[in-house]
Design a protein around this nucleic acid. Structure first.
Lengths: 235, 235
DNA sequence: GAGTTAAGGTCAATGGTGTTGGCATAAGGC
DNA sequence: GCCTTATGCCAACACCATTGACCTTAACTC
């Protein structure tokens, strides 16, 4: 059988593969992340990952419960990377902006994992640490508990939601992504102005803006409203 | 060959399949939507869809350019359902709020399909109609072209992003979803108050709020900022 | 060091997937 | 009623994840 997964800490015998590499959970996750980044959405498969590691594909099942388990492990790694090395400045708006962009960026660096991971509540240590930090920033800024929770919820969900949305195109094959982007020029720019006056009037602006993430703008709008609510409450 | 796709309008000969069904783009999309809803997004495959239609899988390639094309058609159908029966009131903020909630709702009615399609640009008629309507509302409200495009982008992406995020839990089985929600009470509410003071202080509020969508709050915050920018520009 | 155990490799097979080239047949225009 | 060809079907290809059986050898015991 190939399905008895041994937790990493309990591993004792590290037998090298036929091609000489010594497997470990860490090595597998890092190799998987690299493959996803370099070869795109279609790049990650048990067979290819095995080949890249110099091991039989079935060896992976000694470390993870199927490819799904592997992607969850990758998700944990992403959260870790988003928070690694971050520390608050004490200016709440700057802190929330920086943290949001970090989370968004860490997920976008690995779109496939982002798509599978972004909408799940793991309850694991690093996720809890992030939640605690965000709530701390808001409450430290002077928001009441109710406001802090409401804004925290909109803030974290918006960050993850945009991460997943923006990851979508990146997770496509290169051709599919190119044709999605091109559509803004090929289809939208050529619509008849009488039937679609508003698109026609803004076609150039649309083609320039749509291929980029709207997250920074949406984040700033959210922070704007939060800041005003804080000022109103204080006044 | 099985790859010359004929647009629906140009179709003339409607030859029934061996099992007697008469294929059409509409029938295929509706069947696919039903399959996705009943068996999850992983349950949709060319072979199974073919079987459900009483047709050979390869017949689908006469209607769509691969499964990816079918995915785009499903997204188009969802947008169409969101817009069906909607008409503007002339009050821009009310219109944008209503339209956003409609889009969000239409996608959530088919969570699995939403996960599949929310991040795709289809360039098809009904999606274009939605874009034209939103841009029209903004420009009609008095926003300049640049502002209109910027707000449009943040608005539409926010709607779709939250639709996809909120669809995630709904696409899970009932038990898995319940355990996700419960985690806010079981895990977060029991964290030590000294290590996690902010979570501990707001645990009750979190448990009450987190299981619901943050989209209405985030949408309102976006509209708030837009309204203020309009007022500032006009003043 | 020799013997034993089982972790952790490999191999081969199963049943799934999207996709395509070639073929057959019937629908619709004449 | 004939002809053309759109459109359905078949068979095949190359890939995929996963698993059960088998084998090698690291690590522990004496």
């Amino acid at each position: 059988m190939a399905k008895d997964v041994v937790p990493e800490e309990a591993r004792r015998r590290r037998r090298p593969t036929r091609q000489g590499t010594v497997l470990s959970e860490k090595l597998i996750v890092e190799t998987a992340l690299r493959m996803v980044r370099e070869h795109g959405s279609a790049g990650l498969s048990a067979r290819r990952l095995g080949a890249a590691l110099g091991a039989d594909p079935s060896s992976l099942y000694r470390y993870f419960e199927g490819m799904d388990g592997l992607t969850l492990a990758i998700g944990e790694e992403l959260i870790g990377r988003a928070l690694a090395g971050w520390s608050p400045t004490g200016r709440w708006r700057d802190d929330l902006r920086a943290l949001g962009l970090r989370i968004h960026g860490a997920y976008l660096a690995h779109p496939q994992a982002a798509l599978l991971t972004a909408s799940r509540v793991t309850g694991r240590p690093r996720e809890i640490a992030a939640d605690e930090a965000i709530l701390g920033i808001l409450r430290g800024a002077g928001f009441g508990d109710e406001d802090a929770v409401r804004i925290y919820h909109a803030y974290i969900d918006q960050s993850l939601a945009f991460a997943a949305l923006d990851a979508g195109p990146l997770a496509l094959s290169a051709e599919a992504r190119a044709s999605d982007e091109e559509r803004w020029e090929s289809t939208y720019a050529r619509l008849p102005a009488d039937a679609y006056p508003n698109i026609a009037a803004t076609a150039g602006l649309l083609a320039a803006r749509m291929p980029h993430s709207a997250y920074p703008v949406a984040l700033e709008m959210l922070l704007d409203t939060a800041e005003r609510q804080l000022a109103d409450a204080g006044a």
